[in-house]
């Protein structure tokens, strides 16, 4: 090894930061994959228990497809605005970022509100998670997704405060990138919930 290769092995500060970003985003992808396995396990339990209504109501009597379609469209739109927000962050348009993530935040909040409304409705009708294996699996799967969305909202709220204060620093853009990965991931999970839980629940 000569002098030349030795110095080329040293990274400039800019290269060091890029490498750190690279590592962090890679690690976050890995985390998302493990979360995917987590949801996969919950889907598996749901599919096993979906007919175990123990004499209680099944999906066809409990779910309203129009209501769930509204939830789905709200979440899909929030993913779209989130994507636009990241594009704006890459271009350094701070105000636009705040606006777009603000809209995403409100849409996410609306989604959670609707979900809580549905849960509350079921609970008050006596169809709680204690009623049957099917309802236990339903509340746990959909609730875990809702918990993820809530975590995302908390994260988004703190990110907006930080962007407002510190601007689009490298750290903030990196975290916004991971937040948007998280948000899109939850969108995909929701598509599966929409299909497996609600559509199949009503149709099959």
């Amino acid at each position: 090894m000569n002098e030349g290769t030795a110095s080329s092995l040293r990274l400039t500060p800019k290269q060091q930061r890029r490498e750190a970003d690279d590592k962090t985003v890679f690690g976050f992808w890995l985390y998302l994959m493990t979360d995917c396995v987590l949801f996969g396990s919950l889907f598996a339990t749901f599919v096993v228990l979906r007919n175990n209504t123990f004499g209680g109501p099944g999906g066809e009597t409990l779910f309203s497809l129009n209501f769930v379609l509204a939830e789905t469209l709200i979440l899909l739109t929030s993913s779209f605005t989130c994507g636009l927000g990241i594009l704006a962050a890459r271009r350094g348009q701070k105000n636009l970022v705040l606006w777009l993530f603000g809209i995403t935040f409100l849409l996410g909040l609306a989604f959670i509100g609707l979900e809580l409304h549905e849960f509350n409705h079921l609970y008050n009708d006596g169809d709680s998670w204690r009623r049957s294996g099917f309802l236990s699996a339903f509340f746990t799967l959909v609730g875990t997704h809702g918990l993820h969305i809530s975590t995302g909202l908390l994260w988004m709220g703190t990110m907006m405060v930080r962007v407002k204060k510190a601007g689009l620093s490298r750290l903030n853009v990196r975290q916004l990138t991971m937040l948007s990965l998280f948000w899109h991931f939850l969108d995909i999970v929701w598509i599966f919930i929409f299909t497996v839980v609600y559509l199949f629940g009503v149709v099959l």
Binding site: T45, V48, L49, N52, F54, R130, G133, F139, T140
Partner: peptide
């Protein structure tokens, strides 16, 4: 834990649970 703490029926012998799962 949800079975034990919140009375769910994932693995209970009654209520539509499935211990073999």
């Amino acid at each position: 834990f949800l079975d034990r703490a919140l009375g769910m029926h994932f693995f209970t012998a009654i209520g539509g649970g499935n211990p073999m799962m």
